[in-house]
Amino acid sequence: MFEVYLAFLLLTGIVAGIVGSLSGLGGAVVIIPVLTLLLGVPIEYAAGTALIATIANSSGAASAYVKSRLSNIKIGMSLEIATTGGAIIGALIASAIYAKGLSSDIFIIFGIVLFISIIPIFMEHKKGRKRRMNKDWTTGAFQLSGKYYDRAINETVRYSGFRWWFGELVMAAAGLISGLLGIGSGTLKVLAMDWGMGLPIKVTTATSNFMIGVTAAASAAIYWSLGYVQPLLCAPIIIGILAGSYYGSKKLDDIRGSRVQVLFLVILAIAGMEMILRGFGIA
């Protein structure tokens, strides 16, 4: 019986990993509705599991991005001041909400955040080319420039970002949501750097992945001490998600912007709706 339980969770993790990477939202966002709505796991434990899964996913992906020099370590590190700070506050707010028995609020917030996260993915493909050398006083002060090799156009791209303070502000919100809900909030991180700081989308995605692990580590430690990290839930789910996202990330470029991705996003939108309904006690 125990083996059946493990195999089932492992499979759940694999599916979440595939859907997460193919939709572009990450396995952690998928695992929370699956665990809560389908398996009846209390949302604080689902969030605890998702946070640990987020670290695993981020570290795995970032390892490749750092090696290919796509992640900008300085920009990531400087923004982690805000994400880790926000994550701590978010995790503390979550613990206060759970202590008051208001987990239905978390369901509602999760559903809304899931909805909002889907929108930028639809818009991503319509973006035109932007200026790459944005500058203000923070560009020099915080060394917000770099270069990467773009395989698609076969040249080295130099770039710089600006409005560091604005990036910090949005990152604090991203960290807070991450700690509150147990997700990586990669979409908001990408928005902060792309739209807020004028950095190229490739660098933004790679740097966001690099930052998510540290952000999630801060809130994961707090979830651990609250007792919301369940080893028998974490182990099969995380091994599954790692395998699923590894497979999914290889396929992502083939289906990016296609109907398959739209289908996954629609499924996630329905999951978001279900979470909101559950929060209001309707579902």
Partner: peptide, 16 residues
Amino acid sequence: IFLGIIVLIATPILRV
């Protein structure tokens, strides 16, 4: 399993 989770949390910290 707990040690595995600790290693996972420690990985980004070691990175910092």
